[in-house]
Design a protein around this nucleic acid. Sequence first.
DNA 1: GCCAGTAAGTAGTAATGCTACGTATCCGGA
DNA 2: TCCGGATACGTAGCATTACTACTTACTGGC
Lengths: 108, 108
Amino acid sequence: MRADAQVLKGHLDTLLLASLENGPRHGYAVREALRAGGARFDLPTGTIYPALRRLEAAGLVTGTWAEADGRRRRSYELTAAGQRRLAGDRAAWRDFAAAVTAILDPAP
Amino acid sequence: MRADAQVLKGHLDTLLLASLENGPRHGYAVREALRAGGARFDLPTGTIYPALRRLEAAGLVTGTWAEADGRRRRSYELTAAGQRRLAGDRAAWRDFAAAVTAILDPAP
DNA sequence: GCCAGTAAGTAGTAATGCTACGTATCCGGA
DNA sequence: TCCGGATACGTAGCATTACTACTTACTGGC
């Protein structure tokens, strides 16, 4: 999926939180996870790193520095607030998607 | 649906084009159409009117003034370009929705 | 030595929906 | 008769946020 236009607006945070749901990941790994899988969101690093920092500032994730092969990584983990947010976002997404689909493909 | 945050970003144009698909409508009617129906997008007029003008400037719709009951209305109609755009947006939405859902509700 | 891959970031920009107004007409109720 | 609500259109300014383009740094293969 091309990161075409700003269709992602408001949904990026949800995607990031979801990628952190099954345990901590560092930014690059989150990016790879979104790039692979059925989704194929090819997001530039200039999108993903600031977004993770934003989530951290909002208290939804916590980041910790780690060293591996002389390479520093910042590993992010969901906080309790992040998990609650993700649950809410998930429900909101379902509503939103259903609403848009209702307008785009109206039931006869 | 509350117009909460900017979840709508990048999708508003698509919704507007879709509401104009079954014949011309004026701004207020488009707003009512989105407010009713299964969707319930409650959009402020400060969102809808500028957006319609933007679509007009982009050549996706054409607007014409009309008079009814001493009330002036600007009726918008899809152009050929608008119809093409709507078709593309519709496909893009399906892809996008499927991609987000794949991340949020991963198949086991 | 150089390039690709891994890893993290920043500065600045552009797009765009929202808030808060302002204008005007028509109609029903107090 | 006056007022509020519905109808109808709009603008100015703001805030959010993803993207572009760039920088830094280490490792391994050609």
